Simulated assay, not measured.
Amino acid sequence: MPAASVSHRHSYSRIPLARQLWRAVGHDRNPLCRPVDRARSRLLLTVTVAMLLCVAFSTLLALTRLDGMVAQAHRTAQHRHQVTATTLAAAGSDSLTSAATSAKAAWDYPPTDHRTGVVPVLAGTAPGVRISLWVDDSGKPAAPPQADRRLETTAGMYGLGVFAVTGAAVWTGRAVRRRVLDRRAACGWEHDWQQVEPLWSGRSRRPENGEH
């Protein structure tokens, strides 16, 4: 690639964004502006709009997912009940290697039903300790309702994942198109240089003397 082409590409990257966008919509009347320069500016405008659309799209999907998870969490919460259980035995033997383990406990739910089972407890829990326990409508231990903050975090991570995928696709397309435009610009410079170099160097004005 000629040095002039490399220099022009670097100088193009230093053109202010506003001017490039102005050029992209066809309002730059600079006589030195080539079609490939306008194509580069249109590419910049397209990528800018596409990235903004990626942000809007990923945000919309994240909010939609959040609404769905919140609705599901509220429906689940209607079938979760917090009761007080009493441990019947010490925590399991794995309590020395983990902060959480399990132990046998007893609780009442519905209030007329006495139940026992193995429930999660902190390591080192002794018999006779009262703990909070979440159960379902049948009285079996169940996962607690999900907190809204956790749902927001999950939806936010989902939105970031969507943005990462769509943004990467846009940036890949931009890189491919930019390479095509760079090659077109290089060919243009080579052609122009072949036309200008004899005049610039004075070779076209030299008498025929067998020199090349």
Rank of each mutant, 00 (worst) to 15 (best):
Gly167Pro: 05
Arg174Lys: 11
Pro120Gly: 10
Gly159Arg: 05
Leu181Arg: 12
Ala85Thr: 02
Arg150Cys: 10
Cys187Gly: 13
Val129Lys: 11
Arg184Glu: 15
Arg115Glu: 04
His114Phe: 01
Gly139Ala: 01
Asp182Cys: 12
Gly156Ser: 08
Leu160Phe: 15
Ser132Gly: 12
Ala85Tyr: 00
Ala168Thr: 02
Pro120Arg: 11
Arg115Asp: 05
Ala99Gln: 09
Thr112Ile: 09
Trp134Glu: 08
Val162Trp: 08
Leu96Cys: 10
Lys140Cys: 00
Ser95Gly: 09
Met157Asp: 10
Gly173Ser: 04
Ala142Lys: 04
Ala168Cys: 06
Leu96His: 13
Thr125Gly: 03
Leu133Thr: 03
Asp108Lys: 13
Gly124Lys: 11
Asp148Trp: 06
Gly173Trp: 03
Thr97Ala: 13
Val121His: 03
Lys104Gly: 10
His114Pro: 06
Lys104Asp: 11
Ala155Cys: 08
Ser138Cys: 01
Trp107Asn: 02
Gly173Ala: 05
Thr97His: 15
Thr153Asn: 06
Thr87Glu: 06
Leu88Arg: 01
Ala169Phe: 04
Leu88Gln: 07
Thr112Leu: 15
Arg130Gly: 02
Val170Arg: 08
Arg130Pro: 00
Thr112Asp: 15
Asp148Cys: 01
Gln146Phe: 03
Ala123Gln: 08
Asp148Lys: 09
Ser93Ala: 13
Leu160His: 12
Trp171Val: 11
Ser132Pro: 11
Leu160Arg: 15
Thr84Asn: 02
Asp108Glu: 13
Gly156Thr: 08
Ser102Gly: 07
Ala103Asp: 06
Ser93Glu: 14
Val135Tyr: 06
Val119Met: 10
Gly117Met: 08
Ala164Val: 07
Glu152Gln: 13
Arg177Asn: 14
Thr86His: 00
Arg183Ala: 11
Trp171Glu: 08
Gly128Glu: 12
Arg183Phe: 05
Ala103Asn: 01
Cys187Ser: 13
Leu151Asp: 12
Ala90Thr: 15
Gly139Cys: 00
Tyr109Asn: 01
Val165Tyr: 01
Ala186His: 08
Pro120Trp: 09
Ala168Asp: 02
Thr87Met: 02
Pro144Gln: 04
Val180Cys: 06
Ala126Tyr: 04
Ala91Arg: 07
Asp108Ala: 14
Leu181Gln: 14
Thr84Gln: 08
Ser98Pro: 00
Trp134Ser: 07
Val135Pro: 07
Arg130Met: 02
Ala175Pro: 06
Ala100Glu: 09
Leu151Ser: 12
Val162Glu: 03
Ala123His: 07
Tyr158Asn: 00
Arg115Trp: 02
Val176Gly: 12
Ala91Tyr: 08
Val129Thr: 15
Val135Cys: 06
Ala147Thr: 13
Lys104Trp: 04
Gly92Lys: 03
Val165Gly: 04
Asp136Met: 05
Phe163Ser: 14
Pro144Gly: 05
Ala175Thr: 07
Lys104Ala: 12
Ala143Ser: 10
Arg183Leu: 14
Ala168Met: 10
Thr153Lys: 02
Ala185Trp: 11
Thr86Gly: 00
Trp107Phe: 09
Leu160Cys: 13
Asp108Thr: 14
Ala143Leu: 11
Asp137Thr: 13
Trp107Leu: 07
